[in-house]
Design a protein around this nucleic acid. Structure first.
Length: 679
RNA sequence: GGGGGUGUAGCUCAGUUGGAUAGAGCAUCGGAUUUCUAAUCCGAGGGUCGCAGGUUCGAGUCCUGCCACCCCUGCCA
């Protein structure tokens, strides 16, 4: 039995013991870990609760239960501690053996992939939507946080056996794209041919050009308010989907999407499907959703009032209370406010389109996209893109029972509107499986902002962070940051003189830079606002990705060196050289405790992954990886393995190193962090 | 006005669903390795867990009321 199985068994048997002894049920039995390994590995505090119910001292209850719990497979003994904790002391040799089996043959973490054969709509498939950047300019660090969180979450789900489909929503017909097109047409006076040339120019960076252009368009709108009229005209042309303007928008947004995919590929993020708003429009997804909502009376046409001539989702539908001003001023404001889905001019709002998209995700729309291949990743995955008429050999997408949408916390209200619409339609079950994976934005520390040449007010300087602004062109572009990280990592790699080969140096620098970045973005819980600071983000020491990578390299160096004189050696066979009695002895007593601590920690990878999924918190895995690495580094300092004179003990130490290396490696794969050959 | 979030060491943050003696990293100071690489390890100082009540065997964690900061509250997306 591995750790997860033992936990499950303890829950079951403890509940049963309580039932049989006291004829009461314990609900949601929480398992803990005692403060010291001497007190056991699994603890239950339920007896304090039971004491009240049974009117008996908790310690007595614990004692009574303890007697009933043995024999227990995988558990050596059960003890009662402090006022009434029931603690389980696991059979160390047995757990180590189970862990070896679990870690054998390298990582069995399946790659997240959602490619399901056509026609096979899968209710157990899980959809993760992330990234979803407006395709009108280069990606920035906030987008990286979204993508890395979503990608890591998808990896976690896949590692726990789920079939995962990763979608990236492309709002290619929205205002933000329109604004950039306005810039090309009226600020730069470019013809479609010239824009195409700009896209294809290998010496420039099209996404960076758009970044600046977008900011210039906003300056223009501010200095000449009349100019904003161009936006509506352009947007209308894009939505209608024909003519030169629409073609330009299509070309520009596709070029930007390609840049985004490349940027994300650099940080080990891939997608299965790009779901585009243009197809939601062209294939009348909205019309289908609209009809559905009308038929089920989920929405209402307003004859009067401030939303006159609009179709709205009424507040009664269960919208969260956000509503208007207090009625005290005598105005005829209503206490509750409805959400407009169709404007008085007949156009649909963003929320409306999002409802249609989400209905499709759950297979509730009765319509489907066409699909065409868009990008082939080197490791074999294919990113598909929605089209009007599709490719016959395309796999099926959507039609899931559970969907996660990684969207920043500012959009919580809008996301709750989508769920409310689901409930109003009678899709309560689907609404409950529609998870808004909310995370906080990335800001800049005032010092960092000033370093970038952003002028700050004295008030701003006092804040812990300042907001980035795409409209002002203020922020840190993802690729610039990655470049800087690689540059710094390369300096460090060269300084260590481990290799002369420039290709290996470059590869190591890339891996280290990406590891540092991904860990930096993952180590904060998703509700924390990250105040970005170059010093912290570029750190390679302490609680960082490179620290984790270095730990794995250290472990591997031991084997590398050991193997030099023993070419036939295989770490996989170490397990066989140790009997149960050997293991039992090695983990016993004062001396064995630290060894055992390493194994016990290593055995928690799966349990930590489950916890991260349940709490939708990838940081849990990041923190765990760091703890495991720290424990190993401490061990590494205290035990010199290659010079160990006792051969039996040396085998055991090698065995430990191997277990930790496999476990840490598996954890890093969950985090999307690679490990270089040498560091 | 209403809804949501946050408040823990000088700084940046964890805190396993209410449990056993509040923890890391950075920064500061002091130590360690002729050895499997120091991108490492050990140690020290540093805390009114925003404030005040409450709930109970037990509260950083839950409930109430304040205070501070942030976000949302569009016929923008």
């Amino acid at each position: 039995m591995d750790y997860l199985e033992i936990q499950k068994e303890i829950r079951r048997q403890f509940a049963q013991a309580v039932r049989e002894t006291f004829a009461v049920e314990v609900a949601e039995l929480a398992l803990g870990i005692p403060p010291s390994l001497d007190l056991g590995e699994v603890s239950i505090a339920a007896c304090f609760e039971l004491a009240k119910m049974l009117r008996r001292p908790p310690r007595k209850i614990a004692e009574e239960l303890r007697a009933r719990l043995l024999p227990f497979p995988g558990v050596e003994r059960v003890s009662v501690a402090a006022g009434g904790y029931v603690n389980f002391h696991l059979d160390r040799a047995a757990l180590a053996r189970a862990l070896s089996a679990l870690r054998r043959g390298g990582s069995r973490t399946p790659q997240p992939t959602g490619a399901v054969p056509p026609g096979l709509v899968s209710p157990d498939k899980i959809l993760v939507e992330h990234t979803s950047i407006n395709p009108n300019k280069a990606a920035h660090i906030g987008h990286l946080r979204n993508a890395v969180l979503g990608d890591t979450f998808a990896r976690l789900l896949a590692a726990r056996g789920a079939r995962v489909e990763v979608q990236n929503y492309i709002d290619n017909t929205g205002v933000q794209v329109a604004d950039v097109i306005v810039g090309f047409l009226w600020l730069e006076n470019k013809t479609p041919a010239e824009v195409r040339q700009l896209i294809e120019d290998p010496s420039g960076r099209f996404d960076y050009h758009c970044w600046d252009l977008y900011a210039r368009v906003f300056q223009w709108y501010e200095s000449e308010p009349a100019a904003i009229a161009h936006r509506a005209v352009t947007l209308k042309a894009i939505e209608e989907g024909h003519g030169e303007t629409a073609e330009m928008a299509e070309r520009v947004s596709t070029a930007i999407v390609e840049r985004h995919l490349e940027t994300m590929r650099r940080v080990n993020v891939e997608y299965d499907l790009l779901a585009q708003e243009s197809e939601i429009l062209r294939l009348d997804f909205w019309a289908a959703a609209f009809k559905l909502m009308k038929n089920k009376n989920a929405i209402r046409f307003e004859e009067s009032g401030k939303n006159q001539s609009c179709w709205v989702l009424p507040a009664e539908a269960g919208l969260p209370a956000q509503a208007g001003m207090a009625a005290g001023d005598g105005a005829d404001e209503e206490g509750e406010e409805a959400k407009v889905l169709v404007r008085s001019n007949g156009t649909v709002t963003y929320v409306g389109k999002d409802i249609a998209y989400h209905l499709w995700k759950f297979g509730l729309l009765g319509k489907d996209f066409g699909y065409r291949r868009f990008h082939q990743y080197p490791r074999g995955r294919t990113a598909w893109r929605t089209t009007v008429s599709g490719d016959r050999e395309a796999p099926s997408f959507g039609g899931v029972r559970t969907a996660y949408a990684v969207i920043d916390a500012r959009q919580s209200y809008v996301q709750s509107v989508v769920a409310a619409a689901f409930r109003a339609l009678g899709f309560a079950d689907q609404a409950a499986h529609l998870h808004h994976f909310a995370y906080e934005v990335v800001g800049l520390t005032p010092a960092c902002a000033e370093e970038l040449g952003i002028e700050l007010t004295p008030e701003d300087r006092g804040r812990s962070y300042v907001e980035v602004s795409g409209r002002k062109g203020l922020g840190i572009k993802a690729d610039d940051l990655i470049d800087r990280l690689i540059e710094k990592a390369l300096e460090e790699v060269r300084a260590r003189q481990l290799t002369e080969d420039p290709a290996e140096q470059a590869e190591s620098a890339r891996i280290i830079a990406v590891g540092a970045l991904r860990y930096f973005l993952l180590k904060f819980s998703r509700r924390a606002i990250i105040a970005f600071d170059f010093k912290e983000a570029l750190a390679f020491e302490g609680e960082t990705g490179p620290y984790l990578q270095y730990t794995v390299v250290r472990a591997r160096n031991i084997f590398r060196k050991y193997q030099e004189s023993r070419p036939d050696f295989h770490a996989e066979t170490l397990d066989e050289q140790l009997s149960a009695a050997d293991l039992k002895e090695a983990f016993a007593g004062e001396a064995g405790r630290d060894f055992w601590g390493l194994v016990f920690l290593s055995s928690q990878v799966e349990s930590v992954a489950e916890q991260a999924i349940a709490s939708e918190e990838p940081a849990v895995v990041a923190k765990f990886a760091f703890r495991l690495a720290q424990a190993f580094n401490n061990f590494y300092h205290h035990h010199h393995i290659l010079s160990e004179p006792d051969p039996a003990r040396q085998v055991f130490l090698l065995y430990l190193v191997h277990l930790v290396e496999r476990s840490l490696m598996q954890t890093l794969e969950l985090l999307g962090i690679e490990v270089p050959e040498r560091m």
